[in-house]
């Protein structure tokens, strides 16, 4: 194959990359330097870093994204491990993927129905004698629903990493007298770490900018940067400030990518 031919194959991907990745990011960065009067300025950035509100909001976003990722991870690893042991793995995996086919808004509304005063959760609490509780509009319910939505994106990469793991390593470890826990701790977990890292990327990054759930489930008691961006673009029409927050988020995402990036990873996130 000639060199020219390979170059031709790159055109569709190159165009896509330029139009839908590089151009939008460049536009956001460009916009972020303009204030309400369309003057080229750095005020948006100075406003951001001097405002207690924005800094607190950033902290909130990172903290909630961390919690969501943590809980997703705690549930996903054992689940992926368990599914991998099963006989009809493809079927069980399909069940995990199935919820992602349903629109996120529909899922949020379903949870509103479950968590509301007269909802299933409260009916159950009344049945076991605790009595109805305020579940909706709490931080816990927000984290619960966000975790539920993110779980498939964490299970898949971990499952694939487990699948790539050569069973000979596990057998060797056991032959050499390691206990099940030791095998897991020193062989399985380190070898599937790339899957976990890919999962963290796939979950933490979208969680940083969740905004629909903060309103629908969190009742705007949880305010993240996504809320602020939405407000700047839709209500105040201060696209400059909205873009500035966008740039901050992009930088935060790059940091996460660098921290979780691994040169040894062969595949990427299987999505």
């Amino acid at each position: 194959m000639t060199k020219r031919r390979t170059w031709v194959y790159f055109i569709p991907y190159g165009l896509w990359l330029a139009l839908f990745v590089i151009a939008p990011v460049a536009l956001i960065i460009y916009q972020s330097f303009f204030d309400l009067g369309q003057h080229f300025t750095l005020t948006n950035y100075s406003t951001y870093f001097r405002s207690a509100t924005y800094l607190k909001m950033t902290l909130n976003s990172v903290w909630y994204a961390f919690l969501i990722t943590l809980f997703t991870g705690l549930i996903s690893y054992p689940t992926a491990y368990f599914i991998h042991q099963l006989k009809h793995r493809q079927f069980w995996l399909l069940l995990v993927i199935l919820p992602t086919w349903i629109n996120i808004l529909l899922k949020a509304y379903a949870f509103i129905g479950i968590f509301s005063q007269a909802g299933l959760a409260n009916q159950f609490l009344t049945f076991i004698g605790i009595g109805p509780q305020q579940i909706l509009f709490t931080n816990a319910s927000f984290i619960f629903v966000a975790t539920y939505i993110q779980i498939p994106f964490m299970i898949l990469p971990i499952y694939n990493a487990l699948d790539d793991l050569n069973p000979a390593f596990v057998n060797a470890s056991k032959d050499l007298g390691a206990s099940t826990w030791q095998t897991f701790r020193h062989v399985i977990f380190p070898l599937t770490l790339p899957g976990v890292k890919a999962g963290v990327q796939a979950v933490f990054i979208p969680s940083l900018s969740l905004f629909m759930l903060t309103r629908l489930i969190g009742g705007n008691k949880v305010i993240t940067l996504g809320t602020a961006i939405e407000e700047h673009f839709l209500t105040t029409m201060n696209w400059g400030m909205g873009s500035t927050i966008g740039v901050v988020l992009i930088v935060a995402m790059i940091v996460v990518m660098l921290l979780t990036g691994d040169q040894k990873t062969k595949g990427g996130t299987p999505r």
Partner: peptide, 17 residues
């Protein structure tokens, strides 16, 4: 304040939430 929401208020108020 229990929540700050949008269109959903209609649904919540109707359902005595």
């Amino acid at each position: 304040v229990k929540a700050t929401v949008a269109d959903e208020i209609k649904m919540y108020m109707t359902q005595n939430e």
